[in-house]
Simulated assay, not measured.
Amino acid sequence: MGDTTLPRTYRGEPGGKARWFNAVLISLGLLLLELWTLPAALWVRLSIGAVLVGVMAVLLAASLRSVTMVDHQGISVRGLRGTRLAWTEIHDIRTVPVPNVNGVSNPGPATCVYAYRTDGHRVLLPRVDDRELANLPAEVTALRSLLEERRGPDWTPDPEMEAHIARRAETFDRRFRFFSGWKFAGLTVLAIAVVVAFTGTSTGY
C-alpha cells in the first residue's frame, strides 16, 4: 500500500527546478531555431518569436509556485492557476506517459500523474512524476489507497466514466498526432508538454 500519511506535499527536490529551467531553455531554443528557418518575412518570425518567449516566460513564473498538496479533504493543485478537488470528486488517479514529438526526446519527465475527475476531465498533479520521485509507482499506489479510503464505502463510480475517459483520451491523442505532423508545430507541442509536465498548468484535455 505504501505510506498513506497525511498531509503530504509535492514541491520537487532542490535540483528539480534547475533541471526544469534547463529543459525549458533547450525546448525554447529548438523552437526558436526552427522558427528562424521558416520561409516567412523577418518581421513575422520576430513577432512569433516574441510571442513564444512571452508565453514561456509566464509559464516559467508559474513553475515557481507549482505544487501538489494532499490532505484529509482532498487534493490541491497550484500552478498557473489553482485547483481544488474533494476526494469524492475524483474518479481515479493514474500515470500517463509523456509522448515524444517527431522523434525528439522529451527532456522532461517520461511519466506524469493525473487525477481524473468524476466529470471525465483530468487534472495534472505537478511534481508528481518520475523525475521528481524516486519510486513513482509506490507513490501512486499510496495516493490511490488514500482515494479509496477518503471517499468512503458509500461512494460508487459512474459506470459510463471509463468510456468517457477513453473517448477524451482518443480525442487528445488524435489532436496531438495532427499538430505534431509539422515539425515546427511538433516542437511547439514538445515545449508546451515540458512546461505542463513540470508546472501543472493544464487542468484537463
Rank of each mutant, 00 (worst) to 15 (best):
S47H: 09
I26S: 08
L52G: 04
S66Y: 00
R84T: 06
M69R: 08
W36Y: 13
P39I: 05
A57C: 10
I48C: 10
R45A: 02
M56D: 14
G79Q: 03
T88P: 00
L60C: 11
I90S: 01
T68D: 05
R65Y: 02
L52E: 09
S47N: 11
S27C: 14
L64Q: 14
S66R: 00
V58I: 07
A41G: 12
A57L: 14
I48L: 12
A57Y: 11
L28H: 05
A23W: 00
R78P: 00
V24S: 00
A57M: 11
R81M: 03
L28W: 09
G54Q: 11
T88M: 01
H91T: 04
L52N: 05
T68M: 02
I90C: 03
Q73C: 04
G82A: 08
M56E: 11
R45K: 15
W87S: 02
T83Q: 09
V24Q: 01
R84K: 10
S76Y: 13
G74F: 04
V44D: 09
L59N: 07
L32V: 10
I75W: 07
M56I: 12
V77M: 05
V51F: 14
M69Y: 06
T83V: 15
E89A: 08
S76R: 15
I48W: 12
L59M: 11
V70L: 04
L25R: 14
L46G: 10
Q73W: 07
S76E: 15
E34T: 08
M56V: 15
I48Y: 06
N22Q: 11
A61L: 07
V24I: 06
A86V: 10
I90K: 01
L38Y: 08
E89V: 03
R81V: 06
L30Q: 12
S63W: 06
S63G: 15
L32M: 13
S47I: 10
L28F: 05
G74P: 06
G82C: 07
R65M: 00
N22W: 07
M69Q: 05
A62M: 05
T83W: 14
D71G: 04
W36T: 10
L32P: 05
V53E: 09
A40H: 12
V51G: 04
V67M: 04
R45H: 12
W87H: 03
T83C: 05
S63V: 03
T83P: 01
T68A: 04
L60G: 11
W43P: 08
L30C: 06
W36A: 13
L80G: 08
I75N: 04
A40S: 11
P39Y: 09
R65H: 08
A62Y: 12
V24K: 03
V77F: 02
V67N: 00
V67H: 02
L80W: 07
V53D: 09
R81H: 13
R45P: 08
